[in-house]
Computed example of a mutant assay.
Amino acid sequence: MKNIAVIGYGVIGKRVADAIKRQDDMNLIGVCDVISDWRIQNAARKEYAIYAATQEAADKMKSEGISVKGNMSDLLKIADLVVDCTPKNIAAENVTLYKKQNIKFILQGGEKHETTGHSFSAENNYQSAINLDATRIVSCNTTSILRTLSALKRAHLLDYARGTLLRRATDPWESHLGGIMNTLVPEKSIPSHQGPDAQTVDPDLDVITTAIKVPQTLSHLHYWNIKLTKQTTKEEVLNAFKTSSRIKLIRYDQGLVSNNTIKEMFMDMGRPWGDMYEVALWEDMLMIQGDELFYAYVVDNQAIVVPETIDAIRALTGIETDGVKSILKTNNSLGI
């Protein structure tokens, strides 16, 4: 059993904390943040040990009736590994502290690859992460790219890939603070950052992405055009995708015609927050013409990286040295 700390109890942090609690080979020893509102209050209701990142945060938490067990340094002293889920760029500042205290750490995809020197996707490079001091879970979109393209690559079907990403404007709970309305905002650079990010995990991928921010918050939507290595059948392509336990094939003709209907399905399945840890790929939309493959899928930006994070904990701490076994264990615990 390894002692795991979560720094940052936001959209990703709360999900990672809950996922850790579902595992039988790791302990959630505490969560740390600066907030004192309903978010950290819910963590206290779950009887998670609460730590404050600053003295000011501790004073505010105590004024709200939250029992504060200690500060961030106190939490790190008893942790074997820390999962940093703080907002973009804050985690990079925390790295100095983690290194000073000689503690293993995992960052999320908002940070640069160079911050850890290793980027993680469980089905791709679990073995290379075993007993490392640090890794970075690639972003939600990059995770989906790696899962789908790697499945095709394993089947020796992938020549090169070109994808267009329709990106949600903001997280659902922050819709009142920002986002966009009545407009579409193309990412200025081609390729967009997701393609090069995927290559930090698999440098051999020939992938180019473009991205457009759209006025909705439920999920991302990807369209892909794949140059195949040979002419093949739809069945062979679907069988390739089925080699990933984290790709869920869905059907348009079953009423799953949009991201809101897909979200409703996962809520009906009883997933916490209606989370979709899998890539939801339309099998009846998938089409092959000659040596070209076309398909589309949906990505839950709040949930897809959660199982990856659990697997990364096992790899870095050496709890499990077999990636397949870790993935299966994580899947079973989360209902994938």
Rank of each mutant, 00 (worst) to 15 (best):
N124L: 07
Q127E: 07
A296H: 09
G290R: 12
K234H: 11
E123W: 08
D284Y: 04
L81C: 01
M285N: 09
D171C: 06
T229P: 03
P186W: 14
E320W: 10
K153Y: 12
K188C: 04
K329V: 08
Y51A: 05
R39P: 06
S150Y: 14
A44S: 11
V299C: 10
D33H: 14
E320F: 05
L28S: 02
N42I: 00
I262W: 13
S333G: 08
D171L: 08
L238H: 08
G13W: 03
L97I: 04
A17F: 14
E292C: 01
N260G: 00
I40T: 01
M267N: 03
A155C: 07
M269W: 15
V214R: 13
S73C: 04
L97E: 14
D300G: 00
E236F: 11
D300W: 12
I212E: 14
A161R: 12
Q199T: 10
V138W: 08
S63N: 07
A134S: 15
Y295Q: 05
F266Y: 15
L158M: 06
L97A: 04
H222M: 10
G117H: 07
T209K: 12
H156L: 07
L149E: 13
T309Q: 10
T209V: 02
K153M: 15
P87R: 06
T209C: 11
W282S: 02
I103T: 09
H118W: 04
L328A: 08
A52T: 06
D159P: 00
N141E: 02
Q41T: 03
D84V: 07
Q254N: 10
V214P: 00
T86M: 15
D84G: 05
K62W: 11
I35R: 12
T116W: 15
I137K: 10
A280Q: 15
V324L: 03
A151F: 12
V68N: 08
S245W: 05
I226N: 03
I180S: 03
A19N: 10
P196H: 04
A122P: 07
I29M: 02
S36H: 14
Q108F: 03
K153S: 11
L166Y: 15
G13Q: 05
R168G: 01
F105W: 13
D311F: 11
T209S: 15
I50D: 04
